[in-house]
């Protein structure tokens, strides 16, 4: 298990983050260095001012009201998934820096309970959304339209989420231990805490990190670059 954790939860993390950052920067560079279409591709209604167009772009990107109107169920899953993913990401920032004011307010016990609830809800929503998407891609035009990339990404995400939830719901290791592990990575003195090695949670963490690493590595080469591109494309809509 030590080797497994060393690969997935130490070197994998470094590799995943590096490929993700370099890959996304490369993608942004590619876009930036390709000349823009000389023809305006916008549609109407279109706000008259630059500030108006920018605000509309943010609304179109974060809320997508038009998509909500035409396919509310799909929109609801997508919207909730993205909110939950953001919440989960923010929650994980505890590994980098404890949210001291919140912890002072809630107390250690309260903070852990809050994290358990928030993380549990976010993880459940994400899991349900991904399962919905997998099922949606198994029939009709959705299946016809899907390519292996679509399933691969959903499969990787499902792996990340299920193992995260496994740690959240069945884990016996507390956040302090994970913080210890992650901070050792941040100062480039990587170490797997004995408590993780000593329990089966090690397998959960290792597998969570294995999926996360693969997900991060593939991210910049996949359709998930919509995380950046959606802003640009929705700006084009109002130009």
């Amino acid at each position: 298990m030590e080797l497994y954790l060393e690969i997935t939860s130490i070197w994998g993390v470094y590799l995943g983050i590096a490929v993700f950052i370099v890959g996304m920067a490369w993608r942004a560079y590619q876009w930036a260095t390709t000349p823009r279409s000389p023809v305006a591709l916008g549609m109407f209604p279109k706000p008259a001012t630059g500030a108006g167009r920018f605000t509309k772009m943010l609304k179109d990107t974060f809320i997508a009201p038009q998509s909500a109107k035409i396919e509310p169920v799909m929109w609801a899953f997508a919207f909730l998934f993205h909110i939950a993913a953001l919440a989960a990401f923010v929650g994980h920032l505890r590994l980098v820096q404890e949210f001291t004011p919140l912890k002072d307010m809630l107390g250690t016990q309260g903070m852990n309970e809050f994290a358990a609830w928030a993380g549990g809800i976010a993880g459940t929503i994400m899991m349900v959304a991904v399962i919905f998407w997998i099922l949606r891609r198994t029939f009709g035009p959705y299946k016809q339209l899907s390519v292996p990339e679509d399933y691969l990404l959903l499969f990787l995400l499902l792996g990340v989420i299920i193992m995260g939830n496994h740690m959240r719901f069945f884990g016996i290791v507390h956040s302090e231990t994970y913080m210890e592990w992650f901070r050792s990575l941040m100062v480039f003195k990587p170490e797997i805490p004995a408590e993780i090695l000593a329990t089966t949670t090690g397998w959960s963490l290792g597998t969570h990190m294995l999926f996360t690493t693969l997900f991060l590595i593939y991210f910049p080469f996949s359709k998930l670059t919509h995380a950046m591109g959606a802003f640009a494309a929705n700006m084009t809509r109002s130009e």
Binding site: S37, P38, L41, K223, T225, G229, A233, T236
Partner: peptide
Amino acid sequence: HRQLKQYLDIC
């Protein structure tokens, strides 16, 4: 063009 590339990358 940039927009086309983005459309092809992000769908």
